[in-house]
Amino acid sequence: MATSTRTVRVFPFSQLLTHLVLIVGAFCMLYPLLWMIGSSFKPDSEIFTELSPIPRSLDLTNYIRGWVLGSGTSFATFYINSFVVCAGAIIGNLLSCSLAAYAFARIRFKLRGLWFAVMLGTLMLPFHVTVVPQYIIFNALGWTNTFLPLVVPKFFAVDAFFIFLMVQFIRGIPIELEQAAMVDGCNRFQIFTKIILPLLGPALVTTTIFTFIWTYNDFFSQLLYLSTEKHYTVSLGLRLFLDASGQSAWGPMFAMTTLSLVPVILVFAFFQRRLVEGIATTGLKG
């Protein structure tokens, strides 16, 4: 129990206390999830009338009804589509944002301040006022009803959020490493690939996790650009069950929503391990 660590020495009692606090907190965090899982086993006639999270039986009907839609398309298609879009977005963001971030963080070039302000500025305009002109561009390129509008821009670092994130992390890397490499004759690209990228681990992992989750959960842009069912992603698939003006299938919606959390939790669990390892094991020469 008393696993002492390198960094913080923890006594068993305080560790117990930490566990206690964390467990109480965890319950508050998890309650909604439990409620949703519970609802996914209930028939529609009980979901809104009986609010206890515990279902009467583990009835899998909702899962079976939800997985294959009336059209014959199954959620398997939506999962594949979501993964394709997410993979594209992740690769795009990792490549393009890290390049831009390195420039902003380390290279003194003309108008750097201006471009940095412009980059942050792109985060500040509400999405809804630029979405129509953006749609017109993608429509003119013939990209509507393809994954391209959701992926290609990521290869051009349109998610300024991640550039800024990486800038902050790169600025936390001791500059002496770079100066030493320069003395050894490395050019900027070599420094970037051999020093910065390996040390940027935590930021790259964070970028991966966030890009995956945000792309996976994104609704409005996928709704706009994907029009036919074979292109639909999970987040669009989930909305196929709900119609505010008529018939809705709540049970299957909750079942598929529950299921849709599995990949997100897996991705998070897998990558957060990398977060633990991070720089601590990389070793630094001061």
């Binding site: 009336g70 059209s71 196929l240 069950f241 299938a249």
Partner: peptide, 8 residues
């Protein structure tokens, strides 16, 4: 627009 029943 609709839900599964109407789509089918």
């Amino acid at each position: 627009w609709g839900s599964d029943d109407r789509h089918k």
